[in-house]
């Protein structure tokens, strides 16, 4: 029981982290119709910028400065890169962001080296806040949850209570009408792209100390973020939230419980063959849940796409 509660908290941290990335990505997709492959690269830039800044003036200023810088980089990418490629069609845009992801990884390696950098949580948050039974919950985890929740609320307020938010919301469903009403859609695009990147940057700043800051960090998270917004339904903010939490809990619970495939098949009444050594499927029998945990989201995505191509909450064709 304690373990379930603790796993819920751990899964919530992972899920909210995913949400910080997927919310920006899904907003960008809804506005511009482009899946940004480089989105996780902005997450990585956030971590590296924060690392660099925190070496001079500490973690707390970095928490605010780094995302702004990432947002500016994102806006510049939109203005000078994506907008240029836009006229060649969506496939070209997708390929552009794919190339950009490769390039950003190379640039990060070029500037900061190929190994891990020493980016740690601030001293003031390095303690165990409370324990549930024997399980310590680090203060930094609660801090991550707080930041993510604050961002979610802020995002919700901006989208529903401000004029800019209204324009964005309108553009989600009726992009042509918004343009016809005379709004400066390219500027909104640039802004949304910048803000989306900045959100990814925030995620990088706070996740870097926990998940490690190294040139491969974008790749590890990158495709999962896609999976999240595809499962949630492209363009749906609520879908992104639900899918993020779902995937966060799915992977965390899968890693926490050692359920073997043999038990599962046994429960279904299927017995293993007597001689395992010759069977082509022998490895299936020794599989356990933690072994396949991290690839479950991909399975989920394929299933969702096959049976419901709009995703769980989507209403537009991808």
């Amino acid at each position: 029981m304690d373990l379930i509660l603790v796993t819920m908290i751990d899964g919530l941290v992972t899920g909210l982290l995913l949400f910080m990335l997927s919310s920006g990505l899904t907003l960008i997709f809804s506005m511009m119709g482009v899946l940004n492959f480089a989105h996780a690269s902005f997450y990585m830039l956030g971590a590296y910028f924060a690392y660099q800044i925190s070496r001079y003036i500490g973690f707390w200023p970095a928490l605010f400065i780094a995302p702004v810088l990432v947002g500016l980089v994102g806006a510049a990418v939109e203005r000078y890169g994506l907008r240029r490629v836009h006229k060649y069609g969506h496939v070209a845009e997708l390929i552009f962001t794919f190339g950009l992801a490769l390039l950003i990884e190379e640039v990060v390696q070029f500037v900061w080296g190929k190994g891990h950098v020493e980016y740690n949580a601030p001293e003031s948050l390095q303690f165990a806040l409370f324990s549930i039974a024997d399980y310590e919950i680090a203060a930094y985890k609660i801090f991550m949850i707080a930041v993510a929740a604050a961002i979610f609320i802020a995002l919700l307020l901006i989208l529903t209570r401000t004029r800019v938010g209204m324009v964005i919301q309108a553009a989600l469903t009726h992009p042509d009408t918004v343009e016809a009403l005379g709004h400066n859609v390219p500027l909104v695009f640039m802004g949304v792209f910048g803000v989306g990147s900045a959100l990814a940057g925030v995620a990088g700043v706070i996740a870097g100390p926990v998940l490690g800051t190294f040139p491969g960090m974008a790749v590890v998270l990158g495709s999962i973020v896609f999976v999240t917004i595809v499962v949630g339904g492209l363009g749906s903010l609520w879908g992104a939230l639900v899918a993020s939490l779902l995937i966060g809990w799915l992977t965390t619970f899968a890693a926490s419980y050692n359920i073997g495939m043999a038990d599962l098949l046994g429960a279904l009444g299927i017995e293993p063959p007597a001689d395992l050594s010759e069977s082509l499927l022998r490895d299936i029998w020794t599989l356990s849940l933690p072994q396949v945990g991290p690839i479950l989201p991909y399975l989920l995505m394929v299933l969702v796409l096959v049976f419901r191509p709009y995703g769980l909450f989507g209403n537009r064709d991808a």
Binding site: L35, L94, F226, V230, L234, Y298, L299, L305
Partner: peptide, 11 residues
């Protein structure tokens, strides 16, 4: 389109 691309990624 995107659905095919994403399924190919998942597979």
């Amino acid at each position: 389109g995107t659905v095919f691309a994403m399924i190919s990624l998942g597979v």
